[in-house]
Design a binder for these strands. Structure first.
Length: 453
DNA sequence: GTCTCAGGGCCACTG
DNA sequence: CAGTGGCCCTGAGAC
């Protein structure tokens, strides 16, 4: 890592544009070891390269004896091949890059993409050196410039989030394709003094950070009602989204609308991230390999879902809960068009009620804290939280719409509809998943599996 | 024609 | 004895 300021500008440029140093300062996104080059889709270490190759070639099927969230670092990576392989897939290693014919040598079809990935890294380094003086930086693999054209016509509007066309860091599982967020991720050098403890710099580190898997490091980071800092590099894939939360941070749950809103990530940022990731994915595909509308919708759902999981995990209120995996049956299917129609109706009603951001956040919490969920152990706690948020919402509506005394009740009346729609969406997606229509290895399919297992 | 570099194979080592 | 991981070989694509 380099401190830099104008006086050492040239030195910084020299060391950061050097290809060797570019890779030397990158850690394997699977185990955090030193990378040896591009392997099966992204920069990984020699060890994970070999492991991934053997796993795919020999069609290995591993099992995890723990909670499918084993820590992954150079010292412990051998302990659980299941979690290691899952993480390989999660960070974007590609099975298809392992040659079925075992032919040696040559370049694979990803060659041009590897090149572009390198170029993006260099652009990113250049951007950071020229726009962020006197700042300690640790590179992630994200890039800054939207060099690839967007063919995602479903999206409208624009975003100020820098885009990347880097196709390799669009994770496969948890976010399978969730590649990097757009923004640079500065990291305090003091976190990186010991390579043995240094976790990989990963795209979506911000999203991963709240999931179990790197307990030691994660506990050093104080969570609060506010979203955890984007620059936190420690992460772990949400192998099991419903494992009990294990971080006993002592935070004071917020309960007023202002406190709740302060803790919120900007919705537009989440939208921008999803949009940027989809654009990257679409841009990285060949002309005849573009995602169709349904695939785009699935990926949007997957990434939005990931953002929501992050939101819930970051929520101090949610951290008080203990949750276990359970079977949740859903109802028989409905058509996509009727779901869209119902959703549009719901949005229209909420707009008519002039829902503001504070109220929206309260509604999100009310959906999250549902005492009817069978797996919740501390039902009383859920009910108490629900009451607190209810009070907060009521105060907010009375405060902002004193003449509209029924707004609070009207908002609450929308919740059953929200839950009903979500259940039917879930059912619909599960049916499509059974038909093989959903992309594999996505957070979405993982959650569907969990709920229907 | 030469160089690059990513995938595959080999094999000593480990538990 | 199966799995690991470091090292070397191979060969298609880039130049």
């Amino acid at each position: 890592m380099c401190y830099w300021c104008p006086s050492v500008f040239e030195t910084f440029l020299c060391c950061h544009f050097d290809q060797d140093s570019l890779e030397e300062e990158t850690f394997c996104p699977v185990c955090g070891d030193r990378v040896s080059g591009y392997h099966y889709g992204l920069l990984t270490c020699e060890s994970c390269k070999g492991f991934f190759k053997r796993s795919v070639q020999n069609n290995k099927h591993y099992t995890c004896v723990e909670m499918q969230s084993c820590p992954m670092n150079p010292l412990q990576r051998k302990r659980c091949p299941y979690c290691r392989f899952q993480k390989c897939l999660a960070v974007g290693m590609k099975r298809e890059a392992v040659r079925a014919d075992r032919m040696r040598g040559g370049r694979n079809k990803f060659g041009p993409l590897y090149r572009r990935d390198r170029q993006m890294k260099e652009q990113k380094v250049y951007h950071q050196t020229t726009t962020t003086p006197c700042r300690i930086k640790m590179e992630t693999t994200q890039a800054l410039q939207p060099t690839a054209p967007s063919d995602l016509h479903l999206m409208t509007g624009h975003t100020n989030v820098p885009l990347s066309s880097d196709p390799f860091h669009q994770c496969q599982v948890y976010p399978s394709g969730m590649g990097q967020l757009g923004a640079p991720m500065p990291l305090d050098c003091t976190m990186n003094t010991d390579r043995g403890l240094t976790p990989p710099s990963l795209p979506y580190a911000g999203l991963y950070r709240t999931f179990p898997g790197y307990p030691q490091e994660k506990r050093e980071v104080p969570f609060s009602c506010s979203p955890a800092p984007e620059n936190h590099p420690f992460h772990s894939p949400p192998n099991n989204l419903f494992t009990p939360l294990s971080t006993p941070e002592t935070t004071t749950p917020c309960s007023t609308p202002n406190q709740l809103v302060e803790a919120e990530q900007d919705e537009s940022q989440l939208c921008a991230k999803v949009l940027a990731s989809l654009q990257r994915e679409q841009a990285s595909r060949g002309k005849h390999d573009r995602l169709n509308t349904f695939s785009i919708m699935c990926k949007m759902a997957d990434q939005t879902l990931f953002g929501l999981v992050e939101w819930a995990r970051n929520s101090a209120l949610f951290k008080e809960l203990k949750i276990e995996v359970s079977t949740i049956l859903s109802q028989a299917g409905v058509t996509l068009s009727s779901l869209v129609s119902r959703t549009q109706d719901l949005v229209t009603k909420l707009r008519a009620l002039q829902l503001d951001r504070h109220e929206f956040v309260c509604l999100k919490y009310l959906v999250l804290f549902n005492p009817d969920v069978k797996s919740v152990q501390s039902r009383r706690q859920v009910e108490q939280t629900q009451e607190r948020v209810n009070r907060a919402l009521m105060e907010r509506t009375q405060q902002t719409h004193p003449g509209h005394s029924d707004k609070f009740g009207q908002l609450l009346l929308r919740l059953p509809e929200v839950r009903s729609i979500s259940l039917q969406v879930e059912d619909y997606l599960y049916q499509r998943h059974l038909l093989g229509d959903l992309p594999c290895n996505s957070l979405l399919t993982e959650m569907l599996h969990t709920k229907h297992s």
